[in-house]
């Protein structure tokens, strides 16, 4: 597994895609600076403003872009047949690709947290940095992205086209804008979960996350297992 990850990291590092991890955090930080937040909830308000563009649109979209990209250089140069004719297990290759996507998302989330803290400190917020609130938000967002990453990796390994998986992702992400406003559907729609999980709340429903335990178990874990199992078994059998 370590060998496969090192090889994957080499391929990823030399492509410029990882630069995308800066885009959304930078944009969100600008918003964090621009919007004025009043005491006593200034940290929470700033984080909420920042989460709006990031969690609602960019984070789900980036999940798709990252997944498509870790497959793109295999599709374009005929890499799959070379890679899968090596003495490596297909299952580990698939896991390594997924870990790469998760790693990129983690980096994005950490930068986002850094941006939020930067905005708050620069604006001289009185209360000290709310580590728990920010931490809950970014890790919750990451966990909520896992089902999306699993689905997008499935689609990206199956289709050699780069645009098709991204189109799927956009089609599922755009309804977020409507869905999150709905009490009824919001907590069931997987693409809305990154936003909902990142949105800070005064009384957190369930210890470590901003979403309820039911949502975490059934919507996030459930859809992750479904998408991951489908993609994984597909990849084990894929003919290249």
């Amino acid at each position: 597994m370590g060998k496969i990850l090192r090889s994957e990291l080499l391929k990823l590092r030399k492509s410029s895609i990882w630069l995308l991890i800066f885009v959304s955090p930078a944009l969100s930080t600008v918003i964090g600076f621009a919007e004025s937040a009043e005491a006593p909830h200034e940290w929470m308000l700033t984080l909420t403003y920042m989460v709006f563009t990031h969690g609602l649109l960019f984070l789900p979209l980036l999940t798709g872009v990252f997944s498509a990209f870790v497959c793109r250089y295999e599709h374009t140069g005929g890499g799959w047949k070379q890679l899968l004719a090596m003495p490596v297990s297909r299952g580990k290759v698939y896991l390594a690709k997924l870990m790469l996507v998760i790693g990129l998302l983690l980096a994005t989330q950490l930068l986002f947290a850094g941006g939020c803290i930067l905005a708050g400190l620069a604006k001289g917020y009185e209360p000290s940095i709310p580590w728990k609130m920010i931490g809950t938000s970014i890790f919750g967002g990451l966990v909520a992205c896992l089902p999306l990453a699993a689905l997008q990796l499935f689609v990206s390994t199956a289709w050699s086209s780069f645009a098709a998986p991204l189109a799927i992702n956009v089609i599922f992400t755009l309804p977020n804008i409507l869905v999150v406003n709905s009490e009824k559907y919001g907590s069931y729609y997987p693409w809305a979960q990154p936003f909902l999980a990142m949105l800070p709340s005064a009384e957190s429903d369930f210890g470590a996350m901003n979403v309820s335990l039911e949502t975490l178990l059934f919507v996030i874990a459930g859809s992750f297992l479904l998408f991951f199992a489908s993609g994984f078994t597909y990849f084990l059998r894929k003919e290249v």
Partner: peptide, 8 residues
Amino acid sequence: VEYPSYYG
């Protein structure tokens, strides 16, 4: 196999 594989 067939045409060569490479990472451009």
